[in-house]
Simulated assay, not measured.
Amino acid sequence: MKLGVFTVLFSQKPFEEALDYIASKGLDAIELGTGAYPGNAHCDPAALLADEGKLKAFKQAVDSRGLTISALSCHANPLHPQKAIAKEADDIIRLTVELAQRLEVPVVNTFSGCPGDHEDAKYPNWPVAPWPNDFQEILDWQWTNKVIPYWTETGKFASDRGVKFGLELHGGFSVHTPATLLRLREAAGEVIGANLDPSHMWWQGIDPVQAVHILGREGAIHHFHAKDTTIDPINVNKHGVTDMQSYSLMLDRAWQFRTVGYGHDLKVWADILSALRLVGYDYVVSIEHEDGLMSIDEGFTKAVNNLQQILIKEPVGEMWWV
């Protein structure tokens, strides 16, 4: 496995300065935001695709520092019921796929999106309970009319260009659990896989190790984020795991994101990485730092130091003891 970072963390730094800093920490890979929620501070697909010279210089800047690009990320809602918002998301997803093809990056990370509850809806509707039965009807309508058709078509667009999608399993979107990811993968093909982030598993009550097994046995993990979560044992009883309070209200929230090792100890993280190796994932572990208690540099550095202790890097080789 290789250790990387989602570089939106360093959007305030010029691109090459950010690359130098990342390389100085001993990392192997970068994941780049190309628009939508992550922004495109370091990687503007339209500009790079329009200028071959810029594209070559961009790639050289990465290669010269011994880094690789693990994924291009454009998290957005291409199923948004407001057509202008959906089109903007779809446009950046397709541009990102085209750039990934040119840069020979195998994965584009994004969200599945979430539709409304009918054709004229204005806002997304995320059903989370099977009763009253209205919610089941909404869910069936969404998957039949929006989720599966969109990702079948868009998946083919990516597959034709040698690119896979890593859909982040994230609350608020149609694909948010291993089961919903596998449902879409079965319908739209193996181009669909997970950008698996343990932090979103923990707050939903899912054991990330088991999520790795469920998805990994199907070859459905295309990328991996390293981010932690802590659940407050008192606040969760008041607000539940679907706590709608702002992330800034850390003292009162039921759960919050932490840097690696500050929500779960390194034995838990070692179990996750071992499970990834067990199911055949030997790609990049990409740090995503969203810890409200730590600065960018400190949170990132602690995540690097913690993961370097437990990352499994070398090929297995023969079992010499049998």
Results as ranks from 00 to 15, higher is better:
P124V: 06
N133M: 15
V105T: 05
H75W: 05
G166A: 00
S70V: 13
W143S: 02
G172D: 11
N125P: 00
W126E: 03
D90A: 11
W143H: 12
F173C: 08
D63A: 13
A100R: 07
A158I: 11
L67C: 04
T177G: 04
D134Q: 02
E153N: 14
H118R: 09
I148Y: 15
A86M: 12
T68M: 14
N77D: 15
I93W: 03
N109K: 01
G171D: 07
A121G: 09
S174G: 13
A61Y: 02
H80Q: 01
D90W: 03
Y150V: 11
E104A: 11
V97F: 01
Q101H: 14
K146F: 11
L181F: 10
D90L: 02
R183N: 06
E98L: 12
I148E: 03
I148F: 08
S112D: 08
D140F: 11
A194V: 14
E168G: 10
T154R: 07
P115V: 06
N133S: 12
W143A: 09
F165H: 04
H176S: 14
D63I: 10
L99W: 04
T180P: 04
I92S: 05
Q101S: 13
S73P: 00
T144E: 15
V97L: 01
T154N: 02
L72K: 06
W126M: 07
K83W: 00
H170R: 07
L196V: 08
F173Q: 14
R102I: 00
L182T: 00
A158S: 07
F135E: 15
A179D: 13
L139R: 13
W126N: 05
D134L: 15
R102G: 06
D90S: 07
L139I: 11
W131Y: 14
A187K: 13
L182G: 00
V191R: 01
A76P: 01
Q142K: 14
H118P: 06
P132E: 11
L95F: 08
W126R: 00
D140C: 08
L79W: 08
D160C: 10
G116E: 09
E186T: 02
V128W: 08
K164P: 04
E190V: 04
K59Y: 05
P132F: 04
W131H: 14
D140K: 15
N77W: 05
Q136Y: 13
T154G: 00
L181E: 07
A61N: 15
A61W: 04
S64R: 15
D63L: 14
N77C: 02
W151I: 07
P106W: 07
N133H: 13
H80R: 07
S73K: 02
V97N: 05
G116I: 11
E88H: 01
K59G: 13
Y123H: 08
H118K: 14
G113W: 11
D63E: 11
E119I: 10
R94Y: 05
R94T: 01
N195C: 09
N77A: 00
G66W: 09
D91K: 08
F135K: 10
R183V: 02
T68F: 09
A188P: 01
I93H: 06
R183E: 04
S64L: 09
P78S: 08
Y123V: 15
G113H: 09
Q60R: 12
A187P: 00
D90F: 03
A76Y: 04
L79A: 04
V97Q: 06
V62W: 11
P178Y: 07
Y123D: 13
L182F: 03
L67Y: 13
P81S: 05
H75Y: 12
